[in-house]
């Protein structure tokens, strides 16, 4: 406001900056301030000092659970990417009604609650469930296989929930890729595989980065699905944080765990951004 008064010229970027002021204020009040309070709480509750962090990094279950969390999120992210990439590749070429149909197929599962979908996977994977019945009927196994609780069930359940978050950024990115570039590559002598590897894949990297960041970070905070489908080994950080915050009313400890997870997430993000040339995240494309 004072800028105007001092007679400084209006520029496009300054105008955008002002448009941003309101959302930034909103984020400051409803995101940054509470987050700061959580971080501070980890150091002062129940008494000032590092006691909570000594517990987190000590002999308890906490580091192991944090590691489990990162590992599970990483596996889910890789699986999501492997499944989503071909789907998005095909979907991005669709036009008109077919595109709508593909989008609906991706989006509709998102409207069902995560809890219900996780219970549904329980029904599929249990001892007398759909999958075991099928395996038994086909003669592939004599006795029911124990899927529950287990890694397969957790990964399938989580991938199912996270897939749209990988597919959608990929489609958005791939639709913007000029496919005549592939023809150009072919004219210059590239076979289809080479054209894909040298032209399409690099151009789709921003989409991959956005999807990977979205899926990985959301997976770090998963609660219901690993709790229902996973065994003790799949206890994730969110479960411990909920226990501390909601069952034991130990908000200092809950804050310390949440802050550790946040720092870990940011560290991984920064590392990922470095190795992929700073293109990680949806907003970092330019």
């Amino acid at each position: 406001m004072t800028e105007r008064a001092s007679g400084e010229a209006w520029t496009m970027s300054r105008g955008y900056a002002r448009l941003l002021a309101l959302p930034l204020l909103f984020l400051a009040v409803f995101f940054a301030w509470p987050l700061l309070r959580v971080i501070v709480r980890g150091f002062v509750d129940p008494s000032p000092g590092l006691a909570n962090y000594i517990r987190v990094f000590g002999d308890g279950p906490y580091l192991k659970v944090l590691w489990n969390t990162v590992e599970t999120a990483a596996v889910v992210t890789v699986l999501c990417l492997a499944i989503a990439y071909p789907v998005a590749y095909v979907a991005a070429r669709l036009r008109g009604a077919w595109l709508h149909l593909a989008a609906a197929a991706v989006l509709i599962p998102m409207w069902t609650s995560v809890v219900i979908r996780s219970y549904a996977w329980m029904v599929v994977f249990q001892r007398q469930g759909v999958l075991n019945d099928a395996l038994l009927a086909l003669g592939l196994t004599d006795t029911p296989i124990r899927f529950l609780p287990g890694s397969i069930a957790v990964h399938v359940g989580m991938v199912h929930i996270m897939l749209p978050f990988m597919i959608l950024p990929l489609i958005a990115n791939m639709r913007a890729i000029d496919r005549t570039l592939l023809s150009a590559a072919a004219i210059l002598g590239a076979n289809p595989a080479m054209a894909f590897l040298k032209v399409f894949l690099p151009l789709s990297l921003p989409g991959i980065n956005a999807g990977v960041a979205l899926v990985f970070m959301t997976s770090l905070g998963f609660f219901v699905t690993p709790a229902l489908l996973g065994g003790p080994r799949h206890m994730l950080a969110a479960v411990l944080i909920e226990q501390q915050a909601n069952q034991l009313l130990n908000w200092g400890m809950a804050s310390a765990l949440a802050t550790t997870l946040l720092v870990l997430t940011l560290a991984i993000y920064v590392f990922y951004a470095r190795i992929t040339g700073g293109a990680a995240g949806a907003g970092a494309g330019r």
């Binding site: 308890g60 003790p232 206890m235 034991l248 130990n250």
Partner: peptide, 14 residues
């Protein structure tokens, strides 16, 4: 004792 026992239990179950 909930806090202490919960920590031991979580460690045991992992």
């Amino acid at each position: 004792n909930g806090d202490r026992v919960a920590e031991q239990f979580n460690k045991w179950i992992l």
